[in-house]
């Protein structure tokens, strides 16, 4: 049984990790065969499977981290996530399903900030090697139009 308050603490740690720029930690928030994807409300409502970002195992998460940190070029920026209360949508013996709304503000080094994206985390949390991890995390963006690019995962 995964307790909702523990799942909530996991999400708080997840968001803080991204906001602090600790991207190297990101893959270990997921199980070995964990799924991470960013999609849009529009594609989801139309039943279309395209993702903006899709990793279906931890190796892919590490590949993404390495690309983001070493290969891809983008203007440096920071995220600031603001999270809503989490809502338990389903409680199974081994898996807790929770949804949480978020806002993400993006700030560039010149000081300019925008409300970059908003949306919902649809999370499936499991106990794995004594820790809570994501078996699945789907980020559903309200926006279908992204300002410039998404380099750092949400």
């Amino acid at each position: 049984m995964v307790r909702p308050d523990k799942a909530r603490a996991l999400l708080a740690e997840y968001a803080a990790s991204l906001d602090d720029g600790r991207l190297a930690e990101w893959p270990m928030f997921f199980t070995v065969d964990g799924l991470y994807r960013i999609t849009t409300r529009e594609n989801r409502s139309r039943g279309l499977p395209l993702s903006i970002m899709l990793c279906d195992n931890r190796n892919m998460l590490y590949d993404r981290v390495e690309a983001t940190e070493k290969a891809n070029i983008y203007e440096p920026h920071y995220y600031r996530h603001v999270l809503s209360d989490s809502r338990v949508t389903k409680q199974e013996d081994e898996v807790l399903h929770v949804s949480t709304s978020f806002l993400c503000v993006r700030t560039m080094l010149d000081g300019s900030s925008i409300l970059f994206v908003s949306g919902e985390y649809l999370d499936e949390v499991v106990r794995d090697e004594g820790k809570l991890r994501y078996r699945s995390k789907t980020v559903v963006l309200d926006q279908s139009r992204i300002d410039t690019l998404i380099a750092i995962p949400l």
């Binding site: 960013i38 993702s51 970002m53 899709l54 993404r64 891809n72 410039t148 690019l149 998404i150």
Partner: peptide, 16 residues
Amino acid sequence: ANMMGPAGLISMEDGM
């Protein structure tokens, strides 16, 4: 599709 679009491993820089 990870290679294309706003988070594209290849196309990302073209947006910027």
